[in-house]
């Protein structure tokens, strides 16, 4: 079994988002980077499946050298090897092309990633990779079990779940509660240092979109506090201001 998990290197959810260079660049000052939370779920499940079936778990990121600590963390969590495709991930189609080109060479049985990244929230890379490889895709996946060469999957739909069966290979965008996030232990951290991290140059410089400027939303006004003994006042505001009643 060859499993590929694609991870994003994104600002921690609690990071302050701001821009520089006349609002054309993300300001990385003081930002803590993490494995994308959805990718972290995909990785955790992939580690369990690899332990169950044997084989090799590869973790991949399209990014510049600064993302290597994030890849090392994925190795510490349990991936066997890491691949960094050396390019700035400017556009989803560009990233998907890099992943698909790499996957074509290796021939993975399963390609997992988060349902979306938490920086650009596009949720499109898994579908693009699958279409580029001519594989089925499923997202958002909240349960994934293997029975031989068939995956049994639960996909979240509005107000419930849909159960599916897919023959390997396939691509899945994952979310909780597919597995519990795994925190690297000391042994994992030590062994991650010696696990292979391979750097590959980009293949095909194809973009479909490019971001030209950023903007912050307008600041939120102060909260209007209402006395807990006077809920009628809230009802009035919901009627007159919010107009929902």
């Amino acid at each position: 079994m060859k499993i590929l998990v694609c991870i994003t290197h994104v600002p921690d959810t609690t990071s302050k988002i701001q821009f520089t260079d006349n609002n054309t660049k993300f300001d990385k000052t003081g930002v803590q980077y993490i494995i994308g939370p959805y990718d972290d779920y995909a990785l955790a499940r992939a580690v369990e499946l690899r332990d169950q079936t044997g084989g090799k778990l590869t973790v991949l990121n399209v990014g510049e050298a600064e993302t290597e600590p994030t890849l090392r963390k994925a190795l510490a969590i349990g991936a066997d090897e890491a691949v960094r495709i050396n390019a700035e991930p400017t556009d989803a189609f560009f990233v998907a092309t890099q992943i698909a080109n790499h996957a074509k060479e290796i021939g993975y049985d399963m390609i997992l990633m988060g349902r979306e990244s938490i920086d650009f929230n596009g949720g499109m890379v898994h579908g693009m990779v699958a279409e580029l490889l001519g594989m089925p895709s499923v997202s958002p996946v909240m349960k994934l079990d293997l029975e031989g060469d068939t995956a049994k999957i639960a996909r979240e739909i509005e107000g419930g779940k849909e159960y599916l069966e897919i023959k390997l290979p396939f691509v899945a965008g994952c979310q909780e509660p597919i597995a519990e996030w795994k925190i690297p232990n000391m042994r994992g951290i030590m062994s991650a240092r010696s696990k292979p991290l391979q750097v590959q140059e980009l293949s095909g410089d194809v973009v479909a979109t490019k971001t030209v400027a950023y903007e912050m939303p307008p600041a939120k006004g102060a909260v209007k506090l209402i006395d807990s003994n006077n809920v009628q006042e809230l009802v009035e505001l919901l009627k007159s201001e919010a107009k929902v009643l």
Binding site: D119, F120, N121, A208, K210, T211, Y214, P217
Partner: peptide
Amino acid sequence: IYTGKAFAESEIT
């Protein structure tokens, strides 16, 4: 973008 914390102007080529 950034889960509602900012906006981007993006060009389609």
